[in-house]
């Protein structure tokens, strides 16, 4: 119940009731999207978004830019990758 599952919003089921269909690894289920809806935006703008689903509720959008940023930080810690980069750039020089 505490571990969210990432899924992708595929369709809006009921605009009024804030229900959307989410595809979680091939399993489709209705989820409540009130917590990820943006004020003043039609719900349709959520279609295609990746969200984290907890007990039938989309609780957070997964921020792609932030994910990539964290992965960049992690990659920079990879000393081997750093060495390889250095080798590559020095060969070009």
């Amino acid at each position: 119940m505490c571990l969210g599952i990432p899924g992708r919003i595929t369709a809006i089921v009921d605009e009024q009731a804030m229900l959307a269909e989410v595809d979680v690894s091939g399993v489709r289920r209705q989820v409540d999207v009130l917590c990820v809806a943006e004020q003043g935006q039609p719900l349709a703008s959520l279609v295609g978004a990746w969200v984290l689903v907890h007990v039938g509720f989309a609780m957070s959008r997964i921020d792609e830019a932030e994910a990539l940023q964290t992965l960049r930080v992690l990659a920079s810690m990879d000393e081997l990758a750093g060495e390889l980069d250095a080798m590559r750039t020095s060969a070009q020089a």
């Binding site: 599952i5 990432p6 992708r8 690894s25 990746w50 997964i62 994910a67 992965l71 992690l74 990659a75 810690m77 990879d78 000393e79 081997l80 990758a81």
Partner: peptide, 20 residues
């Protein structure tokens, strides 16, 4: 699933353990 595999990369895990 989005950003699951990436955050399980064993090679990067070794790099992090080395820093730790």
């Amino acid at each position: 699933m989005r950003f699951v595999k990436e955050f399980r990369d064993p090679h990067l895990a070794e790099a992090l353990l080395a820093r730790i």
